[in-house]
Every structure is written in structure tokens, then in C-alpha cells.
């Protein structure tokens, strides 16, 4: 059967409770926005297939609970990711300050070549802004990350930021990718390289979209 994707990788959404991680994700995968979303407990999953430079990229997105207490659990998932969104809320100074803590956890627990991107969400709530765009920019620069201000509510910069991180992950894994591309195997599967779930995609792909 036709391949559903060429590459598969995992992105993780991190950030304080209520910064809008789930909303970003819903906007990206389903183009929906619910102002009062049910709290995320533990971890939630979504996926979407993008096409980048002619490569079909399926991204799994792991959406985590933001409460500090849950970090003991969610840290376990860092190592399974290739890319990480660090999300704060531009109307919450505290959530911005916590980015440093999130970033240092990522350094500690995530694989070395993990790709990160900084997101300042809720950019539509300008009147409540507590974190200037410049601050976000500076922090991102200090950490060597790209930076986007986004709004899940108005659908601002959502696709852009997800695509950017996906591109970065692709670029970071280019070596593996080229290797695979050169080889005769028709299945490029970054995740498979990492001992995980290289199986049964055919079966699952046939039910695409049924379980979302």
C-alpha cells in the first residue's frame, strides 16, 4: 500500500499549566480552538503529517501536563523526543521565568541533538501582556533557539512554528535521512532507528483519521 509518510518523529510540548499547550496543539492538528479546554493529566497525544521539502513527515506530538509536580513523570518522556516546544504565556511573567527551569531540565534529560523552539503564546492578549517580545527574543537567542509569538486563538504563527521545529528536526537528522534515502529500503523511519514502533504502520495507516 502507499506509504503514508517518509519520516516519523516526536515533538514534546512543555511549559507551565495554562500557557495554552493543548490549545496550540488543537489549533495545529484540528484547526480548532476551545478557550476552556479540559486539563491535561499526564500526557496526551496528537499527530499530523506535514510535507517538508517533498518529504512526508509524520509528527507525533506529546502534550504534557504543566504542573511542576508532574515533571517527575514527564521528564521520562524527554528522551523519546526529537524536538521540544518550550511554551510560555506572554501575559504571565511567571511562566516566562519558568522557561529557564524547563530548558535546564531539557538539557539534563533530553537527547543531545534535541531541537528546541521557544513559543510565547496568547499574543492576541496584547492588553494583558507582561513579557515583551524583546525579552522572548533575547532569551531565545541566549539559548540558541528560534522564537515565535503565537496565538492559538487567532491562529497566528501556529503552523509556522510547528513547521519550523519540524524542519529543524529534519535538518538535525539529515545524516540519517540521507543514509536512508540512499539505501534501497523504502521506509524512512527515524523513530525506527531508535528501536521504537517501526511496525504495523500499514494497518494503522489504513484507519487514518478514525481515532482522532
Amino acid at each position: 500500500m502507499a506509504k503514508q509518510y517518509d519520516v516519523l518523529f516526536r515533538l514534546l510540548l512543555l511549559g507551565d499549566s495554562g500557557v495554552g499547550k493543548t490549545c496550540l496543539l488543537c489549533r495545529f492538528t484540528d484547526n480548532e480552538f476551545h478557550p476552556s479546554h479540559i486539563s491535561t493529566i499526564g500526557v496526551d497525544f496528537k499527530m499530523k503529517t506535514l510535507e517538508i521539502d517533498g518529504i512526508k513527515v509524520r509528527i507525533q506530538i506529546w502534550d504534557t501536563a504543566g504542573q511542576e509536580r508532574y515533571q517527575t513523570i514527564t521528564k521520562q518522556y524527554y528522551r523519546r523526543a526529537q524536538g521540544i516546544f518550550l511554551v510560555y504565556d506572554i501575559t504571565s511573567e511567571r511562566s516566562f521565568q519558568h522557561i529557564m527551569k524547563w530548558a535546564s531540565d531539557v538539557d539534563e534529560y533530553a537527547p543531545d541533538n534535541i531541537q528546541r523552539i521557544l513559543i510565547g503564546n496568547k499574543s492576541d492578549e496584547e492588553e494583558k501582556r507582561q513579557v515583551a517580545t524583546g525579552q522572548g527574543n533575547k532569551l531565545a537567542k541566549d539559548y540558541g533557539m528560534d522564537f515565535f509569538e503565537t496565538s492559538a486563538s487567532t491562529n497566528y504563527n501556529i503552523t509556522e512554528s510547528f513547521t519550523r521545529l519540524a524542519e529543524q528536526v529534519l535538518a538535525a537528522n539529515k545524516k540519517d535521512l540521507d543514509l536512508l534515502r540512499a539505501s534501497v529500503t523504502d521506509e524512512l523511519n527515524l523513530a525506527a532507528l531508535e528501536e521504537e514502533e517501526g511496525i504495523t504502520d500499514g494497518a494503522a495507516a489504513s484507519q487514518k483519521g478514525c481515532w482522532c
Binding site: 499526564g42 499527530m47 514502533e197 504495523t200 494503522a204 484507519q207 481515532w211
Partner: peptide, 14 residues
């Protein structure tokens, strides 16, 4: 049994 990781994970959390 017919689903891969992501479909199962999505299914079980919703």
C-alpha cells in the same frame, strides 16, 4: 491490535 503506537495512545487517552 490493529493500531500502532500513536493511534493506540490517542485512542486510550480519549
Amino acid at each position: 491490535l490493529q493500531m500502532d503506537f500513536i493511534y493506540s495512545a490517542q485512542f486510550l487517552t480519549r
